[in-house]
């Protein structure tokens, strides 16, 4: 018993060190955001700034049209949620509840597309968007991968758990199939839909490649592109400005994460193969 207790202490000590490693970059980000340029270049580095410069936040935010980029990011995420979310839910529902010729094959193709790395299709996609005159438009950023294997798979896994009885009952009442989906299925799938929305937003929020190649003006950039290309437009990197902007973007997200953590975890559990 005593060795077990000692083991537990060692394990928790290691886990705590790991958690500190997870947090260091975030603490460092806030710290750098508040420093003067001289203090950033000093060795040894300080973790708590000597004179915190709170105006760095406003100054950093003004270096690029970040407000515009924030709005773009919102539009981009909402567009992907509306288009992708609806069609992926519908497609996942059909795969879960209907058997028809080719359904297995189509499902395997949809799942297999998850394996395709985005970069493999960036050139054809860029050319397609160019020919469709969709460069520098929201559609040009939203449409690539708007329906993807992962979302279809996620929704199918969920709809498999919805009992057939309620669908059959609605059919007997003469409900049309699409009405069943809207009136019966969607209301009982709120947790799964929430999860799907979180996954779409997370995917778009993490994505750099589509807004990077399908936009040329920084008025159409998303926040990740704006922050990633900060170094290109500046002479060298103004670290305190860059970190100030990152802080302004990351902190609200952490708060959102703490609120929605439950749904996110539920979604990850749902995608597991059983």
């Amino acid at each position: 018993m005593r060795t077990r207790k000692i083991n537990l202490i060692i394990i928790y000590a290691l886990l705590t060190i790991g958690a500190v490693i997870i947090l260091i970059p975030l603490i460092w980000m806030v710290s750098t955001a508040l420093k003067t340029e001289a203090e950033i270049g000093a060795w040894p580095p300080t973790l708590i700034p000597r004179n915190p410069i709170w105006t760095n936040f406003a100054a950093g935010w003004k270096t690029q049209p970040f407000t515009r980029m924030l709005i773009n990011t919102f539009i981009y995420c909402i567009g992907a949620v509306i288009i992708g979310g609806f069609f992926m839910a519908l497609t996942g529902y059909v795969f879960a509840k209907f058997k028809f010729r080719g359904s297995n094959f189509m499902f395997i193709v949809a799942v297999a597309t998850m394996m395709i790395p985005t970069q493999v299709i960036i050139i054809p996609m860029f050319l397609m968007m160019k020919n469709l005159n969709l460069l520098n438009t929201f559609f040009g950023i939203i449409l690539p991968e708007v329906v993807n294997g992962f979302g279809i798979f996620l929704m199918r896994q969920f709809f498999l758990t919805v009992p057939d009885d309620i669908i059959e009952a609605a059919r007997l009442d003469g409900c049309s199939e699409i009405r069943i989906f809207f009136k019966i299925i969607l209301p009982v799938s709120r947790p799964a839909i929430t999860t799907l929305i979180i996954f779409i937003v997370l995917y778009r929020w993490n994505d750099l490649i589509w807004p990077l190649i399908n936009t040329t003006s920084n008025n159409m950039y998303t926040l990740p592109v704006g922050i990633a290309s900060f170094q290109g437009v500046q002479y060298g990197i103004v670290w305190n400005n860059l970190m100030a902007v990152s802080t302004l973007v990351v902190i609200p997200l952490i708060i959102l994460y703490l609120i929605f953590q439950k749904y996110l975890i539920r979604g990850i559990v749902l995608t597991q193969l059983k």
């Binding site: 958690a19 993490n206 990740p224 990633a228 975890i265």
Partner: peptide, 23 residues
């Protein structure tokens, strides 16, 4: 600890990369 370990999932890769570049 679970919450902390899961935290980076919410941070955009591009921003995480910029932060790590500084760290």
């Amino acid at each position: 600890l679970r919450t902390i370990y899961f935290l980076p999932v919410a941070i955009s890769e591009a921003i995480a990369a910029v932060i790590w570049q500084s760290v």
